[in-house]
Design a protein around this nucleic acid. Structure first.
Lengths: 202, 202
DNA sequence: ATTTTTGTTAACCAAATGGTTAAACCTAAT
DNA sequence: ATTAGGTTTAACCATTTGGTTAACAAAAAT
C-alpha cells in the first residue's frame, strides 16, 4: 500500500480489487480490510456496510464503462467515424480495467432491477435511437448494405467487449499469454472497424 | 416439481437453477433444498458438500457449451460452411440455456486453474490450430482477404456468444422484451454468417 | 413376518461472516 | 499541558450458513 494515500482511498482501492475479483457475494469484508492494511471495524467507520461500499465500487465501475457507449449513440460524427473512434477508445478504456466488463455484467445479471435504479436514476438512460436511425439512413442512402441497425450495433459491442469477458478462458484454454492478449487487443482497435466496414460498405 | 422425477434429478434441476442464477458464492444450500422441495440434510445425503454439487453442475454446463466449439475447430467442412453451421447450431444450443455462458465465464474467472483441471483433464483440450491453419490457407489461396486467423475466430465467438452474456443489460437498458431478444437472436443465426462472409470474402 | 438397507426429516453444531462497542491513540486547537 | 475532535484497534456479538446427528419411515431382502 502506498504511504501517502488517505485511508478512504486505500479502502476504495482494496474494495475495488476484491469486489471485481470475487463479486458482491464472494467478497469478504475481512479480505478488503486486509488488502487495505487496516482493521475491519475501520471499514464500517468509513462505509456503513457492505452494500454501501459495493454500491460505490459498482457505480464507479459502471460510470467507467457506459458513458463511452452513450457517446457513440449521441455524437454527430459519421457512421464510419463513430465505429472507428468507438473501438479505439473503448478498448483503450477497458484495457485499464480488463476485468470490469465481466464484473459489471455479472452483477447486473444478479439483480437487473437494482442496476437500473442505481446506475440510471431518472431519465439519463442511454438512447440508442439516434445511432439506429443514423444506420437506417445510411442504408437508405445506399452507403451501406441493407441490414437491421440493431444487429450492427450488437456486432460492434460484441467484438469490442467479449474478448475481455472471455479473457481467462482464452488465456487458460488457448494458452494465450498476457502479452499475446495485449497484442491482439491492440490490433483489434483497427481490425474491428476494418472488419465491420468491409462487411457493410456497398 | 414434477412428480415422477427421482430425488436426485430434482436436486440437480434445483441446483442448476440456483447456481446458474446466483453463482457458486451466492448460492445457498437451503435455497437449493427449497427449490427441490426437500430437506437440506437430504442434499448432503446425495451430494457430500456444496463443492461436489457445484462441480457436477458446472462440468455439465461446460460440457454443454464447449464441445460445439471444438467441433468447428476440428471438422472437415469448408470455412464458410463451418461459420454458417456454427452460428446456427451454437445459438440454438445456447437458446436452451441463455444464462449458461455468463455463469460459466464468471466461474472460470473466479478460479481459472480449477476450471482447467476439472473440465479439460488430460489432453482433451480444444485445439484451435486446425481452424486457424485453415483460415490461413484460405487467405493464401486468395479466397478471403488477408487477416489474422485468431481475429476472425474471436469475431465469430464474440458475435455469437456476447448477446447472451449481455442479455439482462440489453433488456433492462434498451427496453428489449424477451420476445424481441428471441427474434433478434433468431435472425442472428443467418445475420452473423452473412456479416462475416461479407467482411472477409474477396 | 422380520430384519436390513435405503431414503427422509427435525434438530442441532461449529465456523464463517457482517457488523458493533468501548477503549486507546493521535493531532490540532486552546 | 490539556482538551476535544476525529481516527484506529481488539474484542465481542448476532446471524447466516455449510454440514452433521440421530431418529424415523419406507422399501427390499431374508
Amino acid at each position: 500500500m502506498v504511504k501517502d494515500q488517505t485511508t478512504e482511498d486505500k479502502i476504495l482501492a482494496a474494495a475495488k480489487k476484491v469486489f471485481v475479483r470475487k463479486g458482491m457475494a464472494g467478497a469478504r469484508m475481512q479480505d478488503i480490510a486486509d488488502e487495505a492494511g487496516i482493521n475491519k471495524a475501520l471499514l464500517h467507520y468509513y462505509f456503513r456496510n457492505k452494500k454501501v461500499l459495493f454500491e460505490v465500487i459498482f457505480t464507479e465501475a459502471a460510470a467507467r464503462l457506459f458513458p463511452k457507449i452513450n457517446e457513440v449513440f449521441s455524437s454527430d460524427k459519421s457512421l464510419f467515424e463513430k465505429i472507428r473512434d468507438f473501438c479505439e477508445e473503448y478498448i483503450r478504456v477497458i484495457e485499464e480495467n480488463p476485468y470490469l466488463p465481466l464484473f459489471v455484467l455479472n452483477e447486473i445479471n444478479q439483480d437487473p432491477a437494482y442496476f437500473l435504479k442505481k446506475v440510471w436514476p431518472g431519465k439519463s438512460r442511454p438512447q440508442p435511437e439516434k445511432l439506429l436511425a443514423q444506420i437506417e439512413k445510411e442504408v437508405k442512402a445506399g452507403v451501406i448494405k441493407p441490414l437491421h441497425p440493431l444487429q450492427l450495433l450488437l456486432n460492434l459491442l460484441s467484438m469490442t467487449i467479449f474478448p475481455f469477458v472471455a479473457k481467462p478462458l482464452l488465456q487458460k484454454n488457448f494458452g494465450m499469454t498476457e502479452q499475446q492478449f495485449r497484442t491482439v487487443m491492440e490490433q483489434r482497435k483497427k481490425e474491428i472497424p476494418a472488419f465491420i466496414i468491409a462487411a457493410i460498405k456497398r
